[in-house]
Nucleic acid binder design. Structure first.
Length: 270
DNA sequence: CCATATACCTGGCAGC
DNA sequence: TGCTGCCAGGTATATG
């Protein structure tokens, strides 16, 4: 489900409401991708300072350590004053003085990991290799160009890997490449400076627009306050196999790259 | 170091 | 209706 826009929309939907709360209990369900890293009871009494985002990870800052939350493919968070009955796919309840943060994740590719700090080894193992934030000032054109020059893989796969720039997942990689007129199969190192300039702009634009639309609700994504996203309605290529390109009416093509589907317009993208 | 394949897990859907 | 196979928003890890 979640790429940068969905994770950011989720963050915005509960960060202010949980900030300043004290942890009353932490209950974990079935095993997630990685173990929590300490006994859940050890977090009782901790204060929640706030919630940040790094790539597709949420960082819940405590007065002692940080909780890294990843939504995997099918995860979503809900934050409410009271929680009803726990369902079979609810695998974390963080009960606080200001509400209950619940992780719903049918496939359990998500994770909740406690680390002593963002710089500690358990956190760095997950965050240390991540590329630059696309919506921040650090996403510089010249550095982006230099990084791409070193990659021989297809540009779509370079974007997905998250080592150059973070947050661009399978939906927004296809969308950004359509917006910049680049064929997803082109090797990153072969892209000219003008094309990289277009791509750089497209990545920022598509992610920012998606955040503004509340993300993409393809199957079941909702923010932590239960709101749907609407960006999928204006997708140019993702999930539109065989449908007419919104620009030239040519049927959209779907191919596989690295075991993931890629969508593109064979006329608009060269 | 780089590029690619694999594994993790469940649900929904197309096709028979 | 029920079965089977395939597909799905991610990413650490293994392999070449």
């Amino acid at each position: 489900m979640p790429e940068l826009p969905e994770v950011e929309v989720t963050r915005q939907s509960f960060a202010d409401r949980i900030a300043g709360a004290r942890v009353l209990a932490l209950r974990m369900g079935k095993p997630l991708r990685w173990p929590l890293g300490l006994q859940p009871e050890a977090l009782v009494g901790r204060f929640v300072w706030g919630v940040r985002r790094r790539g597709k990870y949420l960082l819940i800052d405590l007065d002692e350590g940080v909780l890294l939350v990843h939504l995997g493919m099918s995860g979503s968070l809900n934050f409410a004053l009271t929680q009803g009955q726990r369902g079979p796919h609810d695998h974390m309840d963080l009960e606080t003085t200001q509400g209950v943060l619940r992780l719903h994740d049918p496939r359990r590719f998500g994770a909740v990991v406690w680390a002593p700090s963002e710089q500690s080894p358990p956190a760095q193992k997950l965050l240390g290799h991540l590329g630059v934030e696309p919506l921040g000032d650090a996403f510089e054109l010249s550095a982006f160009q230099a990084e791409l020059k070193r990659k021989n893989a297809p540009i779509k796969q370079v974007l997905l890997a998250g080592q150059v720039v973070v947050g661009v997942g399978n939906i927004y990689a296809s969308e950004a490449l359509f917006l910049s007129g680049i064929r997803p199969t082109v090797k990153a190192a072969q892209l000219s400076k003008p094309r990289i300039t277009k791509l750089h702009t497209a990545i920022r634009d598509v992610l920012a627009r998606a955040v503004a639309k509340g993300g993409s609700s393809l199957r079941d994504f909702v923010s932590a306050e239960g709101k749907n996203g609407y960006f999928q309605l204006e997708a140019s290529v993702y999930g539109r196999t065989g449908q007419p390109c919104r620009n030239c009416a040519t049927p959209i093509k779907q191919i596989m790259q690295g075991q993931r589907s890629t969508f593109f317009c064979p006329v608009c993208q060269k």
